Amino acid sequence: MASDESYTTEEIAKLLKISKLTVYDLIKKGELPSYRVGKQMRIDAADLDAYKQRAKGIAFAERPLPAAEAAPPPAFAARPAGARPLVITGQDVSLDILAKHLEQRLPESRPLRAHVGSMDSLIAMYKGEADIVSTHLLEGETGRYNLPYIRKLLVGASYLVVHLLARKAGLYVARGNPLGLRGWVDLGRPGLRLVNRERGSGARVLLDEQLLLRGMKPGRLLGYDLVRTNHLGVAAEVAAGGADVGVGSEKAASLVEGVDFIPLIDEQYDLVVLKHAASRVWIPELLGILRSDAFKRELQAIAGYDLSRTGEVLHET
């Protein structure tokens, strides 16, 4: 392994056959030394090799182990304060803006973005692998967003739920809507080709809840198992003619040529933060950013966001 070679977090995940969130967790615990090149985290080949040797239980003379190599922390364990990464999960561009503001307000922190869906984000938080989680999960029977899922997954945890923004969700259709689709019930049309999101994503939960409310069986939808892992991928599949319809947010439709958007629901997009000794250092800064004019001005420049409740604490245990 060349000593001057380095890898991105995505490459490390593929090499070790683990998730990108697990790579971030190894970085957070200091088991994988990393450094920043622009906005990208890099891990030197020598440090990766040292980690692998330690994992095998083999002494590695050139890079001795720390005096007290801690075991992986249990769920909800407090993270040490200092210059360790803050992992922010979710796919909306507002989170990239949030990460930039956090880096400016907390120069000792290193915000890292993990582009994963809502349910996987909450599971990662339960495992102690994420610090700021975004979620937009609808409970169809009550029409409530996020809290029902958060309470089930973070049982026994101390956490804060803060509103980030509201946005439109609905259907992606081909330009001009040649099939004349208007609502959820139209998804039951024979021969209509769907492109779906992965299980656990907010869009997939939204679709499943709407089908359940209307007594429609997912297995009868042509293309229900055709999966793309982000809103842009779903919109692009519709634009390319690989599917007739997909579910997602309004923003992606504006970025993909050949797609129209049919708004059907106002989606609530919230942030979840665990409360512990380390996070109490930066939670006030996070709330300050969310409520600041500077942050809201940047979001206002992006069409389709409702910021009337941004920064509002919705629930605190």
Rank of each mutant, 00 (worst) to 15 (best):
K28G: 05
A124Q: 13
S34N: 08
R220P: 00
R189P: 02
E10N: 15
V173D: 06
D49N: 12
I289F: 06
K14P: 01
Y149E: 04
T310D: 11
S292L: 14
R297V: 13
D92S: 14
A55L: 15
R54S: 03
K100C: 00
S308L: 11
L106R: 09
M1V: 08
L171W: 08
L65E: 10
E209N: 03
G241L: 09
R228T: 13
A50R: 13
L179Y: 05
D49T: 15
L164D: 13
V133T: 15
K29G: 08
D96C: 03
L102F: 10
E11Q: 14
L153N: 04
R214P: 06
L153A: 11
H136S: 14
A235N: 04
R228N: 12
L112E: 14
S308F: 04
E237C: 05
G215Q: 06
Q53S: 10
E62S: 04
L212M: 01
L112I: 14
L137I: 07
E31I: 11
K17N: 08
R42E: 07
I97A: 04
W282V: 10
N146L: 12
G246V: 02
A174M: 15
L15M: 11
D293L: 12
A68C: 06
E250F: 06
L16E: 04
G82H: 10
P111L: 05
G191Q: 07
S94N: 08
R214N: 03
G117T: 09
H231G: 00
V23W: 13
R54P: 06
L65T: 14
M1F: 07
G170N: 07
R79Y: 11
L212T: 08
I283K: 01
P111K: 02
L153Y: 05
E129H: 14
H315P: 06
R199F: 15
Y24Q: 08
E103F: 03
A2S: 10
Y269K: 04
I265D: 07
L192C: 01
T135G: 08
E267I: 08
K127I: 07
I58M: 12
A78D: 10
L274M: 11
L15W: 04
D25Q: 09
G82E: 09
E298W: 06
L112R: 07
Q300M: 15
L181H: 03
R113W: 01
K296P: 01
T317A: 05
K14I: 03
G82Y: 03
G241Y: 01
E209L: 02
Y51I: 14
R309N: 14
D25P: 09
V87S: 09
V161P: 12
L112F: 10
G156I: 08
Q210E: 07
S134G: 12
P178G: 05
Y149T: 09
L98P: 02
S34L: 00
L15T: 11
S109E: 07
P33H: 01
M125D: 09
G191H: 05
P73G: 11
K168R: 15
K127D: 14
L226K: 04
G140H: 05
E129M: 14
E10D: 11
V272C: 08
S19R: 13
A59G: 05
G156T: 09
G242H: 04
V87A: 12
L147P: 04
E139H: 10
T317P: 02
E250T: 07
V23L: 07
